[in-house]
Amino acid sequence: MSQTVDRALSILPLLAEGPADLGQVADRLGVHKSTALRLLRTLHGHGLVYRQADQRYRLGARLFALAQEAMENLDIREIAHPHLVRLNESCGHTVHLAVYEEHEVLYIDKVESRYPVRMYSRIGKPVAITVAAVAKLLLADLSDTERRALAEQLDYPLYTARSTPNAAAFLRELDKVREQGWATDLGGHEESINCVAAPIRGADGRVAAAMSVSAPNVVVTADELLTLLPQVRRTADAISGEYSGRTPVKETPA
């Protein structure tokens, strides 16, 4: 039975490349046409493949509906949290997870620093959108038109001497972040707080969330915090792999 399931599932990535006829499916699976036809009929019965008028098969609408439903029900916070905890245990600093919703960037998870000096940030609270590293990553992924329109609408409070002063500077920063694939806030919101961040991507390659590590100068310097960037990016990549389905979750033996 497991071999039958394996063969049936192997048809789906084949058809993702484009429509294929019975002979092509049989050849790819290395089976007789009668076996391939039986598998295709089963998938067709569940709406996962569709037979066209030219007798070729393509992916069925039901498959896309299932994929959309699965994506809508994915909880990125639930997936990311164990990874954030492990990163926090490794480096000791505050770790945040943020998303972009309704023209705001919001923290949706936070793991506190082990050090006595704590950051004033709360889950559900909007971040300082023009300076926060997580915001830069989320907004850099917008289209050029969306980025420009948003940049022109924002206010640019000068929290510190390093704050982003205007829309032109903000757009330049977003272009830089988009190109390099990571972001920083080095005293832009609070003089004494530095932050490095990396993007979390979904199955479509778009940035679905952003995560960061933040620490005050009294605990670690900006240069020292930047040495954690590779670890932050690896953590973000691990979350991306799990969230997008590219990395199967290992099952715990019973």
Rank of each mutant, 00 (worst) to 15 (best):
Q52N: 10
Q153N: 11
H103P: 00
T235S: 10
V111Q: 03
G45F: 12
G47I: 12
E104S: 07
R118I: 03
N194Q: 05
S121P: 01
V134F: 01
R206D: 11
T42I: 15
S113V: 02
Q3F: 13
E179S: 04
A209T: 07
N194K: 02
G92E: 04
P82K: 05
D204W: 09
L171R: 01
A133F: 05
Q68I: 05
V232M: 13
E146W: 06
Y159E: 05
P216G: 07
V249F: 13
Y107D: 00
R233A: 14
E69T: 10
L174G: 00
L29S: 10
R38A: 15
L158F: 05
V127S: 04
V213N: 02
V99D: 01
V219E: 12
A65T: 09
L229W: 06
L22C: 08
D6V: 13
I76E: 03
A140G: 06
A183V: 01
L14C: 05
A20Q: 12
G181H: 06
S34Q: 15
R114C: 00
P199R: 03
S192E: 14
A151Q: 04
M211E: 01
A149V: 15
A135N: 02
F170A: 00
L142C: 08
G124W: 08
D54F: 12
Q153K: 14
P253C: 12
I108H: 03
E191D: 07
A20C: 14
A20S: 14
K136Y: 06
L228T: 05
T94R: 06
E69A: 13
R58C: 08
G18I: 12
D185V: 01
H44F: 10
G92V: 04
I129F: 03
L225Y: 05
A236S: 10
N166G: 02
Q55D: 14
R147T: 10
G60Y: 04
Q52E: 13
Q24N: 12
G30C: 11
S90Y: 13
S34G: 07
R7P: 01
R172C: 00
L9Y: 14
V220Q: 15
D237A: 15
R86P: 01
S113A: 07
L154I: 09
A67P: 00
T130A: 03
A128L: 08
D185G: 00
Y115H: 11
I123S: 02
S214H: 05
V117I: 13
L15P: 03
V177K: 00
G187E: 03
V5C: 06
L63H: 05
S240E: 07
Q3Y: 13
T235R: 02
D237R: 13
T252R: 14
R122L: 08
R172H: 05
S244R: 05
Y57T: 04
F64R: 06
V219F: 08
E112M: 02
P248F: 08
Y107T: 03
Y57W: 15
A36P: 07
P253A: 12
G181R: 04
G30V: 09
R51K: 15
